[in-house]
Design a binder for these strands. Structure first.
Length: 855
RNA sequence: GGGCGGCUAGCUCAGUGGGAGAGCGCUCGCCUCACACGCGAGAGGUCAUUGGUUCAAACCCAAUGCCGCCCACCA
């Protein structure tokens, strides 16, 4: 036993090595990108994690994907920039702080703006540090010297520059429109920030009298909004109401006169076919109101309470007002009926309050040019999507794109760089102006609105590299190569980066978009903290190590379907780490001077198992590479795992064990070469254990991240050798099977093989099957794969042979039936037919060997 | 309402036209001097349903049924 091997504990302990490796990688500058490097560049700007401070499965998946590519690209000779950062996440952070304040029994208003800002700063510092530590824990090889935060002064300047640039193009304007209003945040939010939830409400049928006699009945789930009604609409083709169009209805409880108009948006089949029109509080009503010049009444305050001066409902909450309105209508006999009604209601995705559509003056960004450039880039194939089908999701959304409400009425975020002087002039500038350029006034006030967080996120791939300055980083690293993310933010984020990248940089921000799966809880529900279904990746890392978590993540991330979390699969990769560890121990225990790493000059040599494993290694290597290149990482993991465990450990090391024990140089060559190569292939997926083991191999190894990716192994491919070794496997498995079925002891017994099997096959098979070769053996249980017989000193029965025979006969019957079918033989490709013929012949031979008369 | 994805072994998932796979779990035998986080041998599946295309279908087409997601201004 060599010294090196005795230094290695029997079991692998991830905790013992991971932190040390990360610190070494970082302090030796392995993550640092050099903008002046002559190597081809590979750039990824990591999506700013949401600043809630909680690491979740999404981060683990995303980080695994990004980091495996970073490491792979370094190994294939690229200068890699993997840029980290985090995001101010205005509305989310404001909500977190407000909740903290609520727990302390206070509010941001009581605290005041300045103190609130201090709280926010403290939060950012604390959470920013947490996020960074978590990314380190995951082994992310990020260039920390380039860490970016969306509230850094440089980044803020990028945001302001973009705003001004859009403004100068004439694309930013301010206008009143109907928006999604969150009454709790007291801010507008975008369509994409709404979560729809099913509500069980009541549909109320209300009679509206018509001037000059008669009436009509409308149906609504929100009777309180009738207080702001300014019209009634029916479908122009609805015979029931033809005579009423042009007349005037009288709004109950209020007495307002409501023009009755005809509009195609009204569904004849819904309710009564008559629609109360509330242009101030419903997007569809707003459209109808615009077409028919109906008055717009804002019936709600920013906190969602009723704004109906002079009416008894003024100041009530929406629900209170609804109850009272319904009571009053009932008292007046105007409530015709009530029906249970199920529909979807929008909630704020951050604070969960029910969204109120209302009219509000907001900042808007025109999207036409941005959208058209993105569509053009797409038709030129400048962005590749993985899986491809998500490109359609993106294009469908783009085509239906409307102007973007970029303003938010929050305390937190990038302030809109619009300033007004006391004389009413408006200035839009990147740097805050000291005086009005029109009149020289120094009495300037800044617009109170902040920007949608996604406005700044949209600039991420170039703002992080220094834009608008013409920096070395921007020149060297833009456009970047990848964005990997969850599909829920394709429209919120990915699409907007593509649009701004094309507009400001003239090129798409990344060449590839990878959409990874969502990890569900084991029972299929969403993983969520509030449901208690979340799984903390840190707990998994504690139990199984980062490598296991990452390997699992890579194995599921790009599978087409969302995946239910299955802890046993993570555990499986920890066992795999342990297997690699022990395989290394075995190889290192081989005595003598081991060959100093000389990948590329190794030769296959005379031994069957050596030639076989090198051929399999060549296959595994190309499979791993192909999986990474095609964003099907699950294929890479599967190929590496199967090779390392089921071929290298289970067969090669078992076959070559004695030679290794004897210090056989050829066996050492091959074993070290395979080990070296598989550690390289696995490094992107399992960086810690691979570097740990690789560093223990002879040859004064540096770091795997700086080692070359395996290539040029095709010369080892030897299909005839693989076929021969398949005989070894077949014989050994039959011997073991018979031993077990006969209840024979674990070792011992005799094996006679026909000379056609070959001496080397016989020797290896006998050793692995724990039997002795005996050319004189008489009788015994016949083998199927080759002419041969095995017998054991104790135990009896040939149940396995019987079962095998039956299986072969069934298979042969099927094959013969097929071959007897002239449709098949005439129409199927000839190679299929001859393959089946060969198989039938093999089955016949095997059946012959197993049949008693042949013994 | 529109679109997308899924339905394969007890569980979680691979498998895109010619002999049904993996991991975990289960049964049985093994502490064989790398590994019990292990080794070996097994059991277990009318590949959701129905119809179609084809010499041949888990795989292609159509419909249906569940499950999930995205998009959408029917109150």
């Amino acid at each position: 036993m060599s010294e090196t091997e005795t230094q290695m504990p029997k079991a692998f302990d991830p905790q013992a090595i991971e932190a040390g490796w990360y610190a070494r990688w970082e302090s030796d500058g392995l993550f640092r990108a050099d903008a002046s490097s002559p190597k081809p560049k590979f750039t990824m700007c990591f999506p700013p994690p949401n600043i809630t401070g909680e690491l979740h499965m999404g981060h683990a998946l995303q980080t695994a994907i990004y980091d495996l590519l970073a490491r792979y690209k370094r190994m294939t000779g690229h200068e890699v920039l993997f840029l980290p950062g985090y995001d101010h996440a205005a509305i989310a952070t404001q909500n977190v702080i407000e909740k903290q304040l609520a727990r302390e029994g206070t509010t941001k208003e009581e605290l005041g703006r300045e103190k609130f800002d201090e709280r926010v700063q403290a939060w950012y510092e604390q959470v920013g540090a947490t996020i960074i530590n978590q990314l380190r824990l995951l082994g992310a090889s990020m260039d920390w010297s380039r860490l970016r935060f969306t509230m850094d002064s440089r980044y803020v300047r990028s945001v302001m520059t973009a705003f001004v640039a859009f403004y100068e193009r004439g694309w930013i304007y301010r206008a009143p429109r109907i928006v999604n209003w969150c009454p709790r945040d007291r801010s507008a939010i975008s369509d994409l920030e709404i979560e729809w939830e099913e509500h069980h409400d009541t549909l109320y049928f209300i009679r509206y009298p018509v001037e000059g006699g008669g009436d009509l009945v409308i149906a609504t789930v929100r009777p309180e909004t009738m207080l702001a009604d300014t019209g009634v609409a029916v479908n122009p083709t609805d015979d029931r109401y033809q005579s009423l169009v042009g007349k005037t209805a009288i709004l109950p409880l209020v007495g307002r006169k409501l023009p009755i108009v005809a509009d195609g948006l009204v569904e004849k089949d819904f309710g009564t076919g008559a629609l109360k029109v509330t242009p101030g509080h419903d997007p569809m009503d707003y459209d109808i109101g615009q077409r028919h010049s109906l008055e717009i009444i804002n019936g709600m305050h920013p906190d969602g309470s009723m704004n109906v001066p002079g009416l008894p409902y003024d100041g009530l909450t929406g629900l209170e007002a609804r109850r009272m309105v319904v009571e009053d209508l009932r008292a007046q006999g105007l409530l015709i009926k009530e029906e249970p009604y199920t529909h979807d209601v929008g909630h704020c995705d951050r604070c969960h309050a029910v969204i109120e559509p209302l009219i509000s003056e907001q900042w808007w960004l025109r999207m036409e040019t941005l959208r058209d450039k993105a569509l053009a880039a797409s038709s030129l194939g400048q962005v590749r999507w993985h899986p491809e089908r998500y490109e359609r999701t993106y294009l469908d959304w783009l085509r239906g794109l409307r102007d973007w409400n970029i303003g938010r009425q929050l305390w937190l975020g990038h302030r809109v760089p619009v300033y007004h002087c006391e004389n009413g002039h408006q200035l839009v500038t990147v740097e805050p102006p000291s005086r009005c350029t029109e009149c020289g006034s120094t009495a300037l006030t800044q617009d109170p609105d902040v920007l949608d967080t996604w406005f700044s996120s949209a600039l991420w791939p170039f703002a992080t590299l220094g834009w608008p300055d013409d920096t070395d980083d921007l020149t060297a690293f833009y456009p970047t190569n990848l964005n990997a993310t969850a599909r829920e933010i394709i429209n919120l984020w990915v699409s907007r980066m593509i649009m701004t990248g094309l507009e400001f940089m003239g090129a798409v921000p990344f060449s590839d978009v990878a959409i990874h799966c969502q990890v569900q809880a084991a029972d299929g529900r969403r993983m969520s903290k509030s449901l208690g279904t979340g799984v903390d990746p840190r707990a998994l890392i504690d139990k199984y190590g980062t490598d296991a978590l990452r390997a699992w993540a890579a194995s599921v991330a790009m599978s087409s379907q969302d995946v239910r979390f299955d802890e046993s699969r993570v555990e499986g990769y920890r066992r795999f780490s342990n297997k690699l560890w022990n395989a290394t121990r075995l190889v290192l225990s081989s005595p003598g001077t081991p060959p100093v790493g000389k990948p590329g000059v190794i030769e296959a040599g005379e031994h069957l198992e050596d030639r076989w494993i090198l051929s399999r290694l060549a296959y595994a290597s190309s499979a791993v590479t192909a999986g990474i290149e095609s964003f099907t990482f699950q294929d890479s993991i599967a190929a590496a795992y199967a090779f390392a465990w089921n071929e290298f450990c289970d067969w090669y090391l078992e076959a070559a064990k004695e030679r290794l024990r004897d210090g056989d140089a050829a066996a050492q060559d091959v074993a070290y070469f395979c080990l070296d190569t598989i550690l390289r292939l696995l490094h992107p997926f399992m960086p810690f254990v691979t570097d740990e083991l690789w560093s223990r191999l002879p040859g004064g190894n540096d770091y795997l991240m700086r080692a070359a990716w395996p290539d040029g192994l095709d010369r080892f491919i030897a299909l005839d050798t693989e076929a021969t070794f398949a005989l070894v496997i077949g014989i050994v498995e039959e011997v073991r099977g018979h031993r077990q079925a006969a209840g024979a002891p674990a070792r011992g017994g005799k094996l006679r093989l026909d000379h056609s099997a070959g001496r080397e096959v016989a020797t290896i098979a006998a050793r692995l099957g724990w039997v002795e070769l005996d050319d004189e053996l008489e009788g015994g249980i016949p083998l199927a794969v080759v002419p041969g017989w095995v017998s054991f000193p104790a135990g009896s029965g040939d149940a396995r042979r019987q079962a095998e025979l039956k299986r072969f006969k069934d298979d042969l019957a099927k094959a013969e039936a097929k071959l007897a079918n002239s449709e098949f033989t005439s129409k199927a490709p000839s190679e299929i037919v001859s393959k089946l013929e060969e198989r039938a012949a093999e089955l016949r031979a095997a059946i012959d060997r197993l049949t008693p008369t042949a013994i």
